[in-house]
């Protein structure tokens, strides 16, 4: 129960940040790909810069979680082709809809109901990847 509230609350915080920082805004994503604003680069850059510090501090000091367990950070699978091809395919969708998988939920909650279409087809896309995975280069 305690954990349920914890994860749900982190989600609420994330949703608020996505709206208030406008990282979930179609206009901001469009502007970013046009290189006409520093806003999105500043957001991602600042998040990653602080993220590197947080992640390295955790790893070097073997820091423990809120529950007293050791924090495990699993490395990403070294699939370079999959990262590049998959990343590019996602990029096409990101620039078209202005939404990443996180903001899809945020925007539906904020009342932009056409995102439900994006959501349903994102599920279908994920399903098709699972179906085709054995035949794709990784």
């Amino acid at each position: 129960m305690k954990r349920t509230i914890l994860y749900f609350s982190i989600g609420i915080l994330f949703g608020i940040i996505m709206i208030k920082s406008e990282a979930a805004s179609w206009f901001r994503i469009y502007e970013m790909f046009q290189f006409k604003s520093f806003h999105m680069y500043g957001i991602i850059g600042a998040a990653v810069a602080l993220g590197v510090v947080i992640t390295q501090l955790i790893k070097r000091n073997n820091m423990r979680s809120f529950f007293g367990t050791e924090i495990q950070i699993a490395p990403k699978p070294k699939h370079i082709k999959a990262s590049l091809y998959g990343g590019s395919i996602f990029g096409l969708g990101w620039a078209l809809t202005g939404a990443c998988p996180g903001p899809i939920y945020v925007l539906i909650g904020a009342g932009y109901l056409p995102l439900l279409v994006v959501f349903v087809f994102a599920l279908l896309g994920t399903y098709c990847y699972g179906l085709l995975k054995p035949r794709l280069p990784h």
């Binding site: 999959a82 395919i89 996602f90 990101w94 078209l96 990443c100 995102l115 896309g125 098709c128």
Partner: peptide, 23 residues
């Protein structure tokens, strides 16, 4: 357009193993 965008997001993120947050 929305359906196409959604499909590309779902397919691409799983193929790449993550999205803006994960990668």
């Amino acid at each position: 357009l929305l359906a196409l965008g959604g499909f590309l997001i779902g397919f691409g993120t799983r193929y790449a193993g993550g999205c803006t947050s994960g990668h």
